[in-house]
């Protein structure tokens, strides 16, 4: 709403910036959510599609789309990152054997990570999506 020279009118945000002669400062938030392995679908692909189905159901009035490892709701992006690959942990040499051993670390430590990214303008939607994710995955 622009009030100027005894008049009031409605303008688009980008037009208002231009008229005021200032540059907007864009604030973007990216929240990282680690999904415990027991709550995650076994593959990143499944997590993405599960998330897409959930968000489509929750936001029937918003534009929800799915891509490879990501789901977007309006301007809010949720990226699904696969678990980190197993880390090779060297084992101490056994006294009964001279050969060296290696093994992978426990798989239970690894989790699929969601990156929920949105601008300050989309904070309300971003926060709702965060809440739905927390409820869906019992976090």
């Amino acid at each position: 709403l622009i009030m100027k020279n005894d008049s009031v009118r409605i303008a688009r945000v980008c037009d208002a910036w231009q008229e005021l002669g200032v540059t907007p400062h864009q604030i973007r938030y990216t929240q990282r959510v680690d999904l415990p392995s027991h709550t995650t679908a076994p593959h990143t692909h499944n997590t993405t599609h599960h998330l897409h189905a959930t968000l489509t159901r929750e936001f029937p009035c918003e534009s929800v789309s799915v891509g490879e490892c990501q789901v977007s709701v309006g301007e809010v992006l949720v990226r699904v990152q696969p678990p980190e690959p197993d880390v090779i942990v060297p084992q101490p040499p056994s006294s009964s054997s001279s050969s060296s051993h290696t093994s992978t670390s426990a798989a239970s430590n690894h989790a699929t990570t969601l990156l929920v990214s949105y601008t300050h303008q989309d904070e309300t939607l971003g926060c709702k999506i965060m809440k739905i994710i927390q409820e869906t995955y019992d976090l």
């Binding site: 540059t23 400062h25 864009q26 604030i27 973007r28 938030y29 990216t30 929240q31 990282r32 680690d34």
Partner: peptide, 9 residues
């Protein structure tokens, strides 16, 4: 200059 990105968990 005209943007800030906050990354946190």
């Amino acid at each position: 200059d005209n943007s800030t990105h906050i990354i946190t968990s």
